[in-house]
Amino acid sequence: MRCTATNTITITTIIITTMLDDFLVRAGLAGIGTALAAAPLGCFVVWRRMAYFGDATAHAALLGVALSLALQGPVMLGVLAAALVMAITVQAMTGVGLAQDTSLGVLAHSALAAGLVGVSFISGVRVDLMAYLFGDILAVTVTDLALIWGGAAIVVGLMIWRWQRLLTATLNPDLAQASGISARVEGLVLTIALALTVAVAIKAVGALLIGALLVIPPAAARPLARTPEAMALLTALIGCAATLLGLAGSLQFDTPTGPSIVCAAAAAFAVSAVGARIWSKR
């Protein structure tokens, strides 16, 4: 009996290892992990009107890339650090009461430009800038996959754990305060989750399109949902579908994968928006 059990495990391991040898399977799993992390967070980005905030944090990822190339450390760690610093800076600035969209615009574009300049300084290594700007999901390694799914698990766990509190703080800060919930603490939770998501997503869609992955799937899910929970689940579903569709499309038509995924999500949004309009007119 023990022998059979060991054999089963060995066979399963072989099957999984063989599957992971296929770059397409790795790409699909990486995309799904990214979409799952982005789904609940993207909902909050949309509900709290934080789209610019997401962009600024995502653009800072390129600074992280430059940093980790210079220090020859793991890219995702550098991205995580840069995104975290940017997100906390932005949150602190809004606390001081600076005009939000202007200061976010300044930070987002400055971070992007500084990142591009920084990467150009790294001599010796040949850097494929496009991979960091638009993602390189077909080159995902098994280690990347482990990091992506690990990060996604932390983000989703954080969202599930704080869900009710985050919703209350999103609805109204004073209402939250009266229930003993600190809007600042919940804002910080979202900030950390956002930085983690950026680090998770850089491989799949790149610094420039992370914002799209955060905003488009929840926008597509909104007309179809009656509760916040349903909207988060639908967002995850739409995100995963767009990932697989984009991946298939990019293979079929030989197009860049990251942008193809975003295009698939945009198509889902168009269908849902038009569908909701027609449905409400009946």
Partner: peptide
């Protein structure tokens, strides 16, 4: 509260609203 700006993008039933937090 005096006024509660509910974002149109947050779908919420009365029961869900009363269940927060």
């Amino acid at each position: 509260p005096q006024s509660l700006q509910l974002d149109g993008f947050l779908p919420l039933t009365v029961q869900g609203f009363l269940g927060l937090p």
